[in-house]
Design a protein around this nucleic acid. Structure first.
Lengths: 239, 239
DNA sequence: AGAGAATACAGTGTATACACTTAAATGCAA
DNA sequence: TTGCATTTAAGTGTATACACTGTATTCTCT
């Protein structure tokens, strides 16, 4: 998504699609949750038109699904889909490993190491945020914008599920240990080891997540979350 | 005036993004060409609103790029980007090969063989159309919807360049020969061979295309194509 | 004629208004 | 109470209208 869909007015900063994407990624908008145009528009202080555009963009990214009735919901993934996406993530990340090792400068490695060290003592939510950033920074080093884009899309789609793995399934410490190993592989110019670590990173998380995915793939109670979208968004905008 | 009074019907809605995507994929809308909302709206007989939504969706897919001035253009890829996307295509297609071999029924193979045979004597444009279909059908067999989606996006992005390779660089006969080999590999349940063929298929095309990509990546003369979008679209809609 | 200022234009962004669809709520009859 | 028809509400799709921006074009003055 290198294309910023920023509006003509530079002053109206928080691009709507951006806020929605982040809200979905961070789990503020749960999978299956209806996305009512008018509610979102009101929460963000705009009309429905730019909201519609954002929803269509997110639908093209797979984050939002338009039902047969025309209503948009946060895409809910079936367990097999989560599994497929984690496998795809592994494929794409390990594909980038050689390029990452090749192009990474000592300064890049130092910056990544600093990032990882700073994550050591974070609690689950903050750690998940940094985790996403860490992987994105890693991808950026490969200098393969389209592969990184595709990978980022996959990461974003599975992030809500990944977060629960971190929170519920205690994945954080093992993942963090692997992050440190990745830094060492990177510092040692060992692309095979980096690729191996990235594959294993996804593989372990994938296994841990299948159980949770089976849980969340169940239909979400619609009435309980009817207006939650606007509220979550308003909170997020206030922050 | 046509009979359709069905404004606000779901059947009409996907048409706009669909038509634009197909027009871009088939090269009717050339890379770099400006996409003027009002022109497209008039050509398709709708207002700018649904056109905007379609453009944003296509931008999220990477087919359309919004410039700093807010204007949308058909995304023009630099040679390195074309190269990256062909490599990514090879990765994704070969990743699906085992699943394709595993799930393909004899009827699937027969249908694909029929499709390939029917392509034998087609001229470049018609062949390119069927070529796209052939690969999409192949991907569908893997039963990996998200991988197939990502692959389809990549195929669509590189298709305008691929078409010129077929037309200008005489790639058709070699590619077609490889298609036949793929069918045989599929019939023989040889997933390694299918993966190898898919890798080689992209690799050869990628090499042939780099030269052309360098050509087309140059900025397109804007004034010569100013209103061509509407005309091409009108023609396509009439067909 | 040429340089600079004022104007017209082309294009975008978005708010408002209205048509349509579906589903829920309501009311009435049995 | 239940079943059914009718009305109401919620939500979406899109056309129109207006505001803004940058660019070209024209006009004026020297």
């Amino acid at each position: 998504m290198e294309v910023s869909i920023d509006s003509g007015r530079a002053g109206q900063r928080p691009a709507i699609a951006e806020v929605l994407r982040e809200s979905i990624r961070q789990g503020m908008l749960a999978p299956g949750q209806p996305l009512i145009q008018a509610s979102i528009a009101e929460a963000m202080g705009v009309s429905r038109i730019p909201v519609r555009e954002a929803l269509h963009a997110l639908a093209a990214e797979g984050l939002v699904t338009f039902g047969e009735d025309g209503g948009a919901r946060v895409t809910a993934l079936a367990p097999e889909e989560v599994d497929e996406l984690w496998t795809l993530r592994a494929l794409l990340e390990s594909h980038m490993a050689p390029a990452i090792v090749r192009t990474a400068t000592p300064a890049d490695v130092a910056a990544l190491r600093e990032l990882v060290v700073a994550m050591d003592d974070l609690e689950a939510t903050a750690w998940s945020d940094r985790n996403f950033t860490f992987h994105q920074e890693l991808h950026r080093l490969a200098e393969m914008p389209h592969v990184a884009d595709a990978t980022g899309r996959v990461l974003t789609m599975i992030e809500p599920y990944s977060r629960v793995a971190v929170t519920v399934l205690q994945e954080q410490s093992e993942a963090q240990a692997e992050h440190h190993q990745m830094i060492e592989a990177l510092a040692a110019d060992d692309s095979d080891e980096l690729a191996r670590l990235l594959l294993h990173h996804s593989h372990r998380a994938r296994m841990a997540l299948l159980a949770y995915a089976a849980e969340t793939a169940k239909p979400v109670d619609p009435q309980a979350v009817a207006t939650a979208a606007a509220r979550s968004l308003a909170d997020h905008l206030g922050a």
